[in-house]
Simulated assay, not measured.
Amino acid sequence: MTLASTSDAPSSPAIDRRSAAPMYDQLRRLIIDGIASQSLRPGDLLPGEHRLCELYGISRTVVRQALGQLEHEGIIERVKGKGTFVARPKTSEALMHTLIGLYDDVERRGGHVRSDVLRHETVPATPEVAEALAVVVDAPVILLERLRYVDDDPWSLSTTWMPEAVGAVTFGADLREGSLYRVLAEHGLRAVAGVRSAEATVASPEQAQLLAISPGSALLRLRSVSRDAAGVPLEFFIAYHRGDRSRFEFELRADAAGASLVPVGAGGSD
């Protein structure tokens, strides 16, 4: 099968109905082999469900099982109304176990981050923000909301709150192409410790529109508080990362000090 063309006859091995391997897994392997042998690139169009049924004489149920598995593995992506495509590889992010930001994490791997600044203003601290930043409720804090792009793909939606004295240095800075952490560092404000958590969630209609995904799509929600050497909070952020674009990596060691598994809803304000 020539995967990039839905009109060609199959040239790869057919489905073996006598094999002990499930037909959906055979089809899955044929598609993977076809992507590799034809050097298809992310974004290349693949045959749709109907064409695969015709090519291999198999049911739509079998095809959907194969495509569902491939999508789960991040090998293909299906876009409603457009078709099935070779997926873009997920970017491994080290944001869970380091204090670097998305900008620096992607930059060191040769990528490019830019941001649309959606909000950048002084607001009163909500109870959650006040607790995270160790300020009183309704104290003025600086809010920074950004839609982050990695190599021009919408990647994450983040909201950062900073104490007024910290956030004041960000006004006038270029936060579309630059790093927030670098701006803070230029003013002697450096995070050396913090607590960060991640959990799975789904996209609201508003988030989905900004991130160019469907409502209900998988998101990874990061919640983080960073502190300076004196233990004073510098920032509190909540970020929503696209589940189809991000993969967080953790460094493991025998000494589990500093790591914990917290049941959802147990402790804290989250």
Rank of each mutant, 00 (worst) to 15 (best):
S5N: 13
S7M: 12
A9R: 05
A14L: 04
I15D: 06
R18K: 12
D25E: 15
L27F: 10
G34M: 01
G34I: 01
S39V: 02
L40D: 06
R41C: 00
L46I: 02
L46R: 01
R51D: 01
L52T: 00
C53P: 00
G57V: 00
S59M: 02
R60S: 03
Q65N: 10
Q69N: 05
K80N: 12
G81T: 06
T84H: 00
R88W: 15
T91A: 11
T91E: 12
T91C: 02
A94W: 10
T98G: 06
D105T: 03
D116E: 14
L118E: 10
E121N: 04
T122N: 08
V123A: 08
P124S: 03
A125D: 11
E131N: 10
L143S: 13
L144K: 08
L147Y: 07
R148A: 03
D151G: 03
D152N: 09
P154S: 05
W155R: 03
T170E: 07
G172I: 13
G172Y: 11
L175E: 07
E177N: 13
E177A: 13
E177Y: 05
G178N: 09
H187N: 14
G188Y: 06
L189I: 15
A200W: 12
T201N: 07
Q207A: 13
A208K: 08
A208P: 06
A212K: 10
A212F: 03
A212Y: 01
A218Y: 13
A218I: 03
L222I: 10
S226Q: 12
D244T: 03
R247N: 08
L252Q: 10
V262C: 02
V262A: 04
G265H: 04
S269T: 07
S269H: 09
S269Q: 07
D270N: 02
D270L: 08
D270T: 03
